[in-house]
């Protein structure tokens, strides 16, 4: 029974797999090449579904409910460059193997692995956490006039821009019983430390107090009509918002808006792919039987494995080429 099952997973046995190097007569390809492209075809459908969800939600969003300029563009650009560099180095690693230069292969593969690790580290230790500490409230439309100083809808209308319903920044004080109270206390301590102001904590228990993003601090400033390349620091201005005027309020997490729901889903799934790629590269880089040890017995086989893993990696890069502009820029 066990052997029967194993038969279908020749990877774990010593069974000889045909056409790991030589071309199959009918396809003209070594078999793994066919396999990876079938897999990538299914990946196209997976990401295609998510991208079409993005389009669907964005087209369906009422004016003012699809944000722009919320992500850190310089960091995103740097991460894009890192992925592109890793795509070059992985193809160089493959070429080195084809030329039978093992030392060069190891070098290029190491760079590739490091690039992937940097990309993930930036995402998980900087980009995502920064969002989880950023807070936004959507104001009820009927209450928007009360908060015109922070929304600037008159100016936006004159400028032919979509309206603004959201006030965002760092939460300094949350309504009683809010699950964000702890975060608010931390931010308030930080704010008091930076500005020497302690007057922002309101006596009313049902208010949100937010240290404003520059866009809400000066919403009628022409300078704010288009996103900035370098993100600007929070202003020292504070807004007090009645909970009864709020349609919904949360940190910049998936629940916050359809924008962030799709952002975290797509970049999260992409990040998992980056992680998977790193693990496979590590396997091929370390002296495993199927890794660099394979070079001694069958270097062409190792080169093909690297090509296959590389094809996956290029696809992950290719997905990011679309993810970057649609979430960071446009």
């Amino acid at each position: 029974m066990f052997n029967t099952i194993l038969k279908y997973f020749p990877f774990f046995t010593d069974a000889e797999v045909p056409h790991t190097v030589s071309a199959r007569p009918d396809t003209g390809l070594y078999s793994a090449k066919v396999g990876i492209w079938l897999f990538l075809a299914s990946e196209v459908m997976l990401f295609g579904g998510l991208f079409s969800a993005y389009i669907f939600l964005r087209i369906g969003a009422e004016p003012g409910y699809w944000p722009s300029g919320l992500l850190n563009v310089p960091v995103g650009t740097a991460n894009t460059a890192i992925l592109i560099i890793s795509s070059v180095t992985v193809v160089m690693a493959w070429a080195s193997l084809k030329m039978r230069q093992l030392a060069k292969y190891k070098f290029y593969m190491l760079i590739t692995i490091l690039c992937g690790a940097i990309f993930l580290t930036v995402k998980l230790s900087y980009e995502w956490p920064a969002k989880f500490n950023h807070f936004g409230v959507f104001i009820k439309k009927e209450s928007a006039a009360k908060y015109e100083d922070f929304l600037g809808n008159k100016h936006l209308q004159d400028a032919g821009q979509p309206p603004r319903w959201e006030i965002s920044g760092h939460l300094l004080d949350a309504p009683k019983g809010s699950s964000y109270s702890e975060q608010a206390v931390k931010n308030a301590e930080h704010f008091a430390h930076e500005t020497h102001r302690h007057d922002f904590v309101t006596p009313a228990e049902d208010d949100y107090v937010i240290q404003l993003d520059p866009i809400n601090a000066n919403p009628s400033d022409k300078d704010n009509d288009r996103p900035h390349f370098v993100p600007r620091p929070l202003s020292d201005k504070v807004a007090v918002i009645k909970a009864s005027d709020v349609e919904s309020a949360s940190v910049f997490a998936p629940r916050h808006s359809t924008y962030f729901a799709t952002y975290f889903l797509i970049t999260g799934l992409h990040g998992l792919h980056v992680l998977g790629g790193i693990l496979v590269f590590l396997y091929l880089w370390l002296p495993f039987k199927g890794g660099t040890k394979l070079y001694n017995s069958n270097p062409e086989h190792l080169a093909n494995r690297v090509e296959i893993a590389g094809l996956f990696w290029h696809f992950v890069d290719l997905v990011w080429i679309f993810v970057f502009p649609i979430f960071y820029l446009l």
Binding site: V21, S22, A23, R24, P25, G28, L29, Y30, K98, H301
Partner: peptide, 19 residues
């Protein structure tokens, strides 16, 4: 599984994989 072992069954195989 080397290129010298393609049985010559088809022209493509005889040429080896494109690699």
């Amino acid at each position: 599984d080397t290129h010298s072992h393609t049985h010559g069954a088809s022209v493509e195989a005889a040429h080896g994989s494109h690699d």
